[in-house]
Amino acid sequence: MVPDNLSPNAQLALRALACASERNLEGFRSCCAADIVLDFPFHPNGAQSHHGVEEMIREFSVEKVFETFRIDAQEVLDCGDRIIIEGRSHGTYRSGRPPYDNHYIFIMTCKDGNVTHWKEFYNPLEALKQNYGKPRPEKQAGA
């Protein structure tokens, strides 16, 4: 459940998540510090860290494989400068692969009206499991 009486930092973190989810790049930039740090502690390719809002936007460009993609906040824990958001994603692939659903935990640090640190936890096995052993759509002749 997302409370109604959220602090400005929690509202900012939710706005940043919504902008990223909606691919609203200008809105996303306006929420983040230029030197924001993005951490993926459990990335399928090993722990990763990215620095700067432009690098973060490039990292999120993987979402281009989706026709639709959305992360909806389920719960928010407002801890002052640190905001914890539990969310669920749903996406449909452009290629016609089965839909993508996952569970996320975001820990965002906010300072001076900007998100300065974005730590994203999700289940990388879920992404693999949802597509493991499922046939990819047949390519059309001439495609």
Rank of each mutant, 00 (worst) to 15 (best):
residue 109 T to S: 11
residue 122 Y to R: 01
residue 7 S to I: 04
residue 29 R to D: 01
residue 10 A to L: 10
residue 87 G to A: 14
residue 1 M to W: 05
residue 74 Q to C: 05
residue 93 Y to L: 07
residue 22 E to N: 15
residue 111 K to Y: 10
residue 47 A to Y: 04
residue 121 F to H: 07
residue 13 A to T: 07
residue 20 A to N: 08
residue 13 A to Y: 08
residue 116 T to G: 04
residue 83 I to Y: 00
residue 111 K to E: 15
residue 40 F to A: 00
residue 123 N to E: 03
residue 30 S to K: 12
residue 29 R to G: 00
residue 80 G to F: 07
residue 24 N to W: 04
residue 103 H to C: 10
residue 97 R to P: 00
residue 14 L to Q: 02
residue 96 G to Y: 03
residue 35 D to T: 09
residue 93 Y to T: 02
residue 53 V to D: 05
residue 4 D to A: 15
residue 136 R to S: 15
residue 102 N to F: 12
residue 57 I to L: 01
residue 69 F to L: 12
residue 60 F to V: 01
residue 47 A to G: 12
residue 32 C to V: 06
residue 51 H to Q: 10
residue 9 N to R: 07
residue 27 G to T: 06
residue 75 E to R: 03
residue 135 P to G: 07
residue 22 E to T: 11
residue 91 G to C: 10
residue 115 V to S: 04
residue 45 N to F: 13
residue 106 F to C: 06
residue 39 D to V: 08
residue 58 R to T: 11
residue 10 A to T: 08
residue 112 D to Y: 08
residue 1 M to E: 11
residue 11 Q to K: 15
residue 12 L to G: 09
residue 71 I to M: 11
residue 85 I to M: 07
residue 42 F to A: 11
residue 113 G to L: 09
residue 135 P to C: 04
residue 52 G to C: 05
residue 82 R to T: 13
residue 41 P to C: 10
residue 13 A to H: 11
residue 89 S to R: 06
residue 11 Q to N: 12
residue 96 G to A: 11
residue 54 E to Q: 13
residue 27 G to R: 04
residue 30 S to Y: 04
residue 129 K to E: 14
residue 105 I to A: 00
residue 67 E to N: 11
residue 71 I to L: 08
residue 40 F to M: 06
residue 62 V to N: 02
residue 104 Y to V: 01
residue 103 H to G: 06
residue 127 A to F: 15
residue 23 R to Y: 14
residue 129 K to C: 10
residue 106 F to M: 08
residue 25 L to N: 05
residue 112 D to S: 15
residue 20 A to P: 03
residue 22 E to M: 03
residue 39 D to Y: 05
residue 113 G to Q: 02
residue 94 R to E: 04
residue 9 N to I: 10
residue 142 G to S: 05
residue 96 G to V: 10
residue 106 F to P: 02
residue 62 V to D: 01
residue 72 D to I: 00
residue 9 N to S: 14
residue 10 A to M: 04
residue 56 M to P: 02
residue 112 D to E: 15
residue 5 N to R: 12
residue 52 G to P: 03
residue 111 K to V: 06
residue 1 M to A: 14
residue 41 P to K: 08
residue 126 E to I: 07
residue 10 A to R: 09
residue 64 K to G: 06
residue 37 V to I: 15
residue 16 A to C: 14
residue 6 L to M: 10
residue 79 C to T: 09
residue 94 R to T: 08
residue 129 K to G: 10
residue 44 P to V: 04
residue 65 V to C: 01
residue 33 A to K: 00
residue 35 D to A: 06
residue 121 F to D: 00
residue 3 P to E: 02
residue 66 F to K: 03
residue 77 L to W: 08
residue 50 H to Q: 07
residue 86 E to P: 01
residue 27 G to V: 08
residue 48 Q to I: 11
residue 3 P to Q: 02
residue 76 V to S: 04
residue 3 P to Y: 09
residue 16 A to Y: 02
residue 61 S to Y: 06
